[in-house]
C-alpha cells in the first residue's frame, strides 16, 4: 500500500476506546490532485480517522505519513507544518475575530514556515474572496450562518498552503447554490495539485466531485472505488439502508 507519490498515507490504523474498537485496519493513500470521498453511516469512524490523521487523537496502532514523512507520533502543529490542513465538523472558527482576521491569523501563524511569497494580508483577502465570503469580510465569525462559517474554515485551512486538506462536513448547512460553488472550488483546488479528503452527508456532492470514494462501516474499510461502482455496490447499499430483520 506504499505509494511513491502519495501526499497522505494511512496504514493499519486502529483506535480503541476501552473495549470499543472505533477503527481497525484502515489503509488509505491519497494522490496529489485527487479528491477522495469518505462516506459511511453515522458512527462509522470518519471523524475519528480525521482526528488520528491530524494528530488530535493518538491511534492504538498504525502509521500516518505526510509527503513521505512518518508523523504517527507528531503533534498537530508539526503535521500542519508538513502540509496538512483540516476543517471541523463542529465549527471551530475564531468567533470573536472577523472573517478576514480568521484567515489572516492562519496565514500569519504559518508565515515563518510556509515560505509563501505573498504577505499574509494578501493571502487573507484572496482566500476570503475565493470561497465567496468577500461581502462578509468584516463580520465577526460568530455572527455567520453555519454555511458561511464552514466556508470560512475552508478558507482558513487553505491559508497554511497545505498539500492535503481534510474537510469534515463542509457542505452541511450550505444552500444548494453554495454547495455547487464549494464543489467547483474543491475540483479547482485539486486541479492545482491539492489532495482533498472529503467527508460529507450530501451524497450528491461527494459522488459528483470525488475521483474515488472510500466507504467506512463500523470502523472498517468496506470498499474503495469509483463513485459509480460504489453507488452500485450492494454491500454499500446495505451499509446505508440496513438489511431486513428476520424475526423469529
Amino acid at each position: 500500500m506504499t505509494s511513491a507519490t502519495a501526499t497522505l498515507e494511512v496504514e493499519g490504523i486502529e483506535v480503541r476506546f476501552g473495549g470499543l474498537v472505533a477503527l481497525q485496519g484502515i489503509d488509505l493513500a491519497v494522490e496529489p490532485g485527487e479528491v477522495l470521498g469518505l462516506i459511511g453511516p453515522n458512527g462509522a469512524g470518519k471523524s475519528t480517522l480525521f482526528n488520528v490523521v491530524s494528530g488530535l487523537l493518538p491511534p492504538t496502532a498504525g502509521h500516518v505519513r505526510l509527503n513521505g514523512t512518518e508523523v504517527s507520533r507528531a503533534g498537530p502543529a508539526r503535521r500542519a507544518r508538513l502540509g496538512l490542513g483540516r476543517t471541523f465538523q463542529n465549527l471551530e472558527t475564531f468567533g470573536v475575530l472577523t472573517v478576514r482576521e480568521n484567515v489572516l491569523v492562519a496565514a500569519e501563524i504559518c508565515r515563518r514556515w510556509a515560505r509563501s511569497q505573498h504577505a499574509p494580508e494578501v493571502i487573507a483577502d484572496t482566500l476570503v474572496e475565493r470561497v465567496g465570503l468577500g461581502h462578509l469580510k468584516f463580520e465577526r465569525a460568530d455572527a455567520l450562518a453555519t454555511g458561511s462559517a464552514r466556508l470560512l474554515e475552508v478558507a482558513r485551512s487553505l491559508a497554511t498552503n497545505p498539500s492535503v486538506l481534510l474537510l469534515d462536513e463542509p457542505a452541511s448547512g450550505l444552500t444548494d447554490h453554495e454547495t455547487d460553488h464549494l464543489g467547483a472550488l474543491l475540483r479547482e483546488l485539486a486541479g492545482e495539485g491539492l489532495s482533498v479528503v472529503l467527508v460529507d452527508h450530501n451524497a450528491n456532492l461527494v459522488m459528483s466531485i470525488s475521483h474515488r470514494v472510500a466507504v467506512l462501516k463500523a470502523g472498517r474499510m468496506l470498499t474503495v472505488g469509483r463513485p459509480i461502482d460504489v453507488q452500485a455496490d450492494l454491500r454499500v447499499q446495505e451499509a446505508y439502508l440496513g438489511a431486513p430483520v428476520v424475526m423469529s
Partner: peptide, 12 residues
Amino acid sequence: RESPAACATLGL
C-alpha cells in the same frame, strides 16, 4: 482562546 484545537491544526 477561541479554539486551541484549531490553532494547533494550523501549526501554532
